[in-house]
Simulated scan of single mutants.
Amino acid sequence: MTTADASKAVGSPIAFDAVLFLSFGGPDEPADVRPFLENVTRGRGVPPERLDEVAEHYLHFGGVSPINRLNLEMIDSLRGELVSRGVDLPVFFGNRNWHPMIEDTVVEMYRAGHRRVLVFPTSAWGGYSGCRQYNEDIGRALSAATAALPEIASDPMLLRKLPQYWHEPSFVEAFGDAVIRAVGQLPNRPVRPRLVFTAHSIPVAADRSDGPAGSGGQLYQRQVSAAAAAVAEKAGYGTEFDLVWQSRSGPPQVPWLEPDICDHLEIVATQGAEQVVVCPVGFVSDHLEVVWDLDNEAAETAERLGLGYVRADTVGTDTRFIALIADLIDRYRGGEVPTGPTSLPGDDAGRELGCADNGSTCRAVCCVPARRPART
């Protein structure tokens, strides 16, 4: 009997039987750096000299990205959290751009007998890069597994991405406390430190197409702004914060979301700021974009400008964040197809910040990737 037949026989969905922790990936040694970057940028028109520049960032840290180690630490913590709750679900690890690749992990899971898998992505956000591309990863991996294992045709496998979680209270609370700790690391001054939130920049064209057709776009940007506002409120800053962007790549002629964090530090220094706390709300762990762009480039810029500077922690090691992942798994492991909340905070135009396809396979008209210009 196939998985689908068994579902019909019992008259209810079959419970999910495993978890796939899906992330971006990163090099484990210097020889991995260039192949990894070529995987990341394939088809994007990124000039070779830009790859050389980014490769130097990785080589600064011995050619090893911290992302795989951090993900493995989160997975170990998640396994412990699930065990403590009496939830017997194995957790597997797969990546989009480097080993262990999601294609290999899905084959491993199928051979281990798993047919219904919840997928936790290490992106909290909507939009193409934060959401739809993870569904594309899942589809690609299933196609590869079907080609490698013909028996999947008669005994199918379902992978379903868990919903976006940027708005979850535990996410906001963990980042809010991280900001409070960071403020406490700076000397007391009459004027409290300037609070600056950062997230990964994306091309302006992609920003315009993020979200369901007809929604006005900018889904990712609006979600990041709403999350920053919630964290600032939790940290006691109210509406007094800045939102900037970092880690842009791609051809220089393609506009991306601005201002860049380092450019913004130049501006706040001219405005009389003396201290700055930077919160990387767009990232769940201290991978290369955080440790290079914020702990090196931004920190050096702040020092040159005479600004006191502290970078707030990411939430990956916070027990509340691990509990949040377990909560999402618990919420959907019984067989219910994951879906996003029916109502989310809105923006000034009254647009909801959710996505009708949140947690489900994306529609053809939701977060369609922008056409990339040919490299010249």
Rank of each mutant, 00 (worst) to 15 (best):
2 T>N: 14
5 D>W: 02
5 D>Y: 02
6 A>V: 02
12 S>I: 01
18 A>C: 06
19 V>L: 09
26 G>H: 00
28 D>F: 00
33 V>K: 03
34 R>N: 01
37 L>Y: 01
43 G>Q: 06
45 G>N: 06
46 V>G: 02
47 P>R: 01
52 D>P: 04
54 V>Q: 08
60 H>I: 00
66 P>L: 00
66 P>I: 00
69 R>I: 03
74 M>Q: 15
93 F>H: 15
94 G>Y: 03
95 N>S: 15
102 I>T: 15
106 V>Q: 07
111 R>I: 07
111 R>H: 10
117 V>G: 06
120 F>I: 07
132 R>Q: 11
132 R>Y: 05
135 N>P: 03
135 N>H: 14
136 E>K: 04
138 I>T: 08
138 I>E: 01
139 G>E: 13
140 R>I: 04
148 A>W: 00
152 I>V: 15
152 I>K: 04
155 D>F: 08
162 L>P: 10
170 S>T: 11
171 F>G: 00
172 V>E: 08
175 F>K: 07
179 V>L: 10
184 G>Y: 00
185 Q>H: 08
189 R>E: 14
193 P>I: 04
199 A>E: 00
202 I>Q: 04
215 S>A: 13
215 S>M: 06
217 G>A: 05
225 S>C: 04
228 A>K: 06
232 A>M: 07
236 G>M: 06
239 T>L: 12
240 E>D: 15
241 F>W: 12
243 L>R: 03
249 S>F: 13
261 I>E: 03
263 D>G: 12
267 I>E: 12
268 V>L: 15
269 A>V: 08
270 T>E: 14
271 Q>W: 14
271 Q>R: 14
271 Q>Y: 07
271 Q>D: 13
273 A>E: 11
276 V>A: 04
276 V>N: 05
279 C>T: 11
280 P>F: 01
283 F>N: 01
288 L>P: 02
289 E>D: 13
290 V>S: 02
292 W>P: 02
295 D>E: 15
302 A>M: 08
303 E>T: 13
308 G>L: 08
308 G>N: 10
310 V>R: 15
315 V>P: 11
315 V>M: 12
315 V>Y: 11
315 V>C: 10
320 R>S: 14
323 A>N: 12
324 L>H: 11
330 D>W: 00
331 R>W: 09
339 T>A: 14
345 P>E: 03
353 L>F: 01
354 G>L: 11
356 A>K: 13
359 G>H: 14
359 G>K: 09
360 S>T: 15
364 A>W: 15
367 C>D: 10
371 R>H: 13
371 R>K: 12
